[in-house]
Design a binder for these strands. Sequence first.
DNA 1: CCAATAGTAAACCAAATAGTTTAATATTGT
DNA 2: ACAATATTAAACTATTTGGTTTACTATTGG
Lengths: 124, 124
Amino acid sequence: MPRRPRPRPTAADAALDRLFGALADPTRRRLLARLAVGPAKVTDLASPFAMSLPAVSKHLRVLERAGLVRRTVEGRVHRLALRGRRLEAVEVWLDPFRSYWEETLTSLGRDLERRPPRPRTARR
Amino acid sequence: MPRRPRPRPTAADAALDRLFGALADPTRRRLLARLAVGPAKVTDLASPFAMSLPAVSKHLRVLERAGLVRRTVEGRVHRLALRGRRLEAVEVWLDPFRSYWEETLTSLGRDLERRPPRPRTARR
DNA sequence: CCAATAGTAAACCAAATAGTTTAATATTGT
DNA sequence: ACAATATTAAACTATTTGGTTTACTATTGG
């Protein structure tokens, strides 16, 4: 029985999948931290890591597909630069949850924090 | 040739891996959104999804191990509640990058945004 | 021209992920 | 006691991931 392939996620979902997926790896987070200092070429990015160059190359491709990194090829050297603005998407996703940890809240907000609302009890 | 197993990440890294990894799936993000409304039991959480109950059960375990969800067993029903504060860890990780997209910046900050610093050219 | 350099491509592998189905466990209502 | 309910466990599968090595391509400096 050929099982149907699981449905492709929506574009928005896929973008968030790639974004969070890219961040879910320590090597890639270190690469981002390094790139926050400034652009760099692949070999320089790879040198601190105890793994092969192709491995780092792949990580960079993942970051690129997530939109977190921009690549400009100058001759044979690929210069990678952080696209920090892409991280705003994380912030945006996070936003509706912000009330759960922010301290500067109305008493209503604080109540929500301390004990999350019971599901529709007094509701209607 | 038995290749050595790749080294376990540090505790801090593993925590972030689990956290971002948990967020890197549309089903789990939907579950979190649902839980933001209020706690719920497994069957109720599962009902909107076109997948089996054990599949959702596994997703919940992933969210739990990431610290994003708290489980309280009352008899045979497991009540899941969002642990929204855990998301603050995302915010914390994000913080050093904030200057890359925030508009309210000094001119220095805006420069950094427009074109990221070239790597140590005039440095030293 | 040629050797060295910078990087990707390809083929491979082990482990992890996301799902399935079937079975098991524990609790509840009658 | 028993049937129904709520949920996890286990065993299986396909796909993805993160790494390797080896081969390839393109650019550069002498």
